[in-house]
Write a protein that binds this DNA or RNA. Structure first.
Lengths: 358, 358
DNA sequence: CTGAAAGCGCTTACAG
DNA sequence: CTGAAAGCGCTTACAG
């Protein structure tokens, strides 16, 4: 690092005190217009850029927010979208976002977690957006560090709380949480589907995963409401990371079973894609023979032919809301915020239609 | 912010000077084992975490690297992978990565660019990984700020330099650049294709985009080598952002033309997917009637049926190399590094086969 | 409206 | 091996 222009250099050249330069920089207090003009000119001439570190030390703010992506092998489109939304919101503020990936053992005691620098040191970030899949032990560790954070609630796995809670509760009720609720959009989708005359509707997805379980529950609710027997199918042999493979195997099992099926609801678009592929291979047309529906509206949802009817999840908005809530929390020095719940949207495309009449 | 434990508190409790606490913290110099023990114990008891801001001010390093994604509407899988690689490498160092999205006018004068905070202020990041699509004016602006940066070279658009340079040059020869070169893998793929007996091979993609142009050039070279007439097709009417749509329209134009075609090389996987969809709709089978090939190996490349033969681009490795090069550059205070070129890999899947004999 | 001074939380010569 | 002191680059009472 070379020696750089500091506020002192500007003050000397402009023949003012450094306090005045600081005032000009921050448009704080009244500064004589002529002086301001002169200081501005020197700043420009010298190419002076204020050093954030000095400001941070006295302001006791890092102007930095951490996007902590937990327990992910890679960044999926959902979390990519959330990060993008976080950045977009912050770009209009005086904060930036630092991205950290972090894996931890869900069963480790909070105090034995080996935390990343951003948590084990002070002064790297003011607060945290905790995304990915998370467990209570990390939150306990963060609480004991007195860290300010906002949790992305959909993928929070708390078996104890789940068990204690009534089974039909929404995801997470704890404070400082942002999540999306696609239940309404799912109800709408299933209502429409049933309205078309479907009676043999299957749900494909691993309900061990909370994000699939929530969707399965709404599915059960809707089937019950319309006195349709719910049929859930999994694919134990499939690679749990490859949803397309999962959907394909699950669908193959439905077809092999010989049981009636007029519609398959995939737990997400990847599973729906797999279902579509399995049907195609089996010579069944979509939606002529069987309707296929998905969730998430990933960009590739339109890659099936016909494109997938699905539920669009508000990825960017989740990011924006997380960032907004966190900044609000920091401003109010930690006061709890009410949870933010974002809705989802039914995206109607070509993969559904009335059931084939036999 | 509440008042927090500082190094002074630790020093007082441990009955030592703050310098000694600092030494214990950094394992610097010799410290009496007993003293060290005592200080460690106090640190633990008080839950003291060192404040990075203090350290940064004196060390004149922000311990932060900027991932500057330029001119992107959203984060595509490639850049997501690069960011992931950057983070992975940095997690083993004392740096973190801050993510910033930035749009600018390619034609604006360098000094008139409105730069994001991370560039207009000092002390937010030590150096920059410039990714996305970039133009010379930003680099000029960064040079005049004396900013340390590494450029992702593949998407750098420099029309003047391009024109001046011999047409068959590789992407970017400038220093401090990381790029991938999938030319070898493409040659291998086309060699294999031609070896199967293909004679009517089309290339689909907009060669205005440098990433497609490079692939088109290798395509031309290979066609020339084997005395095959190169056939390039574009889709002027398509949404240039929706590659699948682009590929579909381009392929439709080939089919409408009535000209012979046994293989279609998409400029990327999205285009290849579109080609596949168009062929399917036209009742042509892949690869029975026509072979389809792509580039990039995005996760959804395996969503076509049969899955796509393509060229895998080393996204994570690009990120790792960028981070590594930048840290090296910072360590050597700006000394230029030789460019890093990463290779790509042919991924053989089911979408190709010998041409149908008429 | 303005400047000298204190102080944010560290590291690092320097002198013991 | 250890501590007092200087100093990194700012902001902000405080006193004019």
């Amino acid at each position: 690092m070379q020696p750089h222009i500091t506020i002192k250099d500007v003050a000397r050249k402009a023949k003012v005190g450094i306090a005045t330069v600081s005032r000009v920089l921050n448009d704080a207090q009244k500064v004589d217009p002529a002086t301001r003009q002169r200081v501005r000119e020197v700043i420009r001439r010298l190419g002076y850029r204020p050093n954030a570190t000095g400001r941070r030390l006295v302001k006791k703010s890092t102007e930095m927010v951490s996007f902590l992506l937990c327990n992910r092998e890679f960044m999926n489109p959902f979390h990519t979208g959330v990060l993008y939304g976080v950045e977009r919101y912050l770009s209009g503020t005086d904060h930036d976002v630092v991205f950290t990936n972090f894996r931890y053992d869900p069963n480790a005691a909070p105090e034995s977690l080996v935390l990343p620098r951003i948590l084990s040191h002070r002064g790297i970030a003011d607060g945290f957006i905790v995304s990915g899949t998370n467990y209570p032990n990390l939150l306990a560790a963060m609480d004991s560090l007195d860290a300010a954070y906002v949790l992305f609630g959909n993928n929070f796995v708390d078996k104890q709380a789940d068990a204690a809670r009534a089974a039909d509760q929404l995801p997470e009720r704890r404070l400082d949480t942002v999540y999306y609720d696609d239940g309404e959009a799912e109800r709408q989708m299933l209502e429409r589907l049933i309205g078309m005359g479907h009676k043999h509707i299957w749900f494909a997805g691993d309900v061990e995963m909370p994000w699939f379980l929530r969707r399965a529950r709404v599915y059960r609710e809707m089937m019950h409401k319309h006195s349709i027997v719910p049929r859930e199918i999994s694919a134990p042999g499939a690679d749990q990371r490859d949803y397309a493979d999962y959907g394909e195997q699950a669908t193959a099992r439905i077809l092999e079973s010989g049981e009636p099926v007029t519609a398959i609801v995939g737990g997400n678009d990847g599973i729906a894609y797999g279902a579509w592929r399995a049907l195609r291979r089996a010579g069944r047309s979509v939606p002529g023979d069987i309707t296929v529906l998905g969730f998430d509206d990933v960009q590739e949802a339109s890659w099936t032919d016909p494109p997938l009817t699905t539920v669009r999840v508000p990825t960017h908005d989740v990011g924006v809301a997380c960032a907004q809530m966190l900044l609000e929390k920091l401003k109010q020095s930690g006061a709890p915020q009410p949870p933010i719940v974002l809705g989802a949207q039914l995206i109607e495309r070509g993969s559904w239609g009335p059931p084939r009449t036999f």
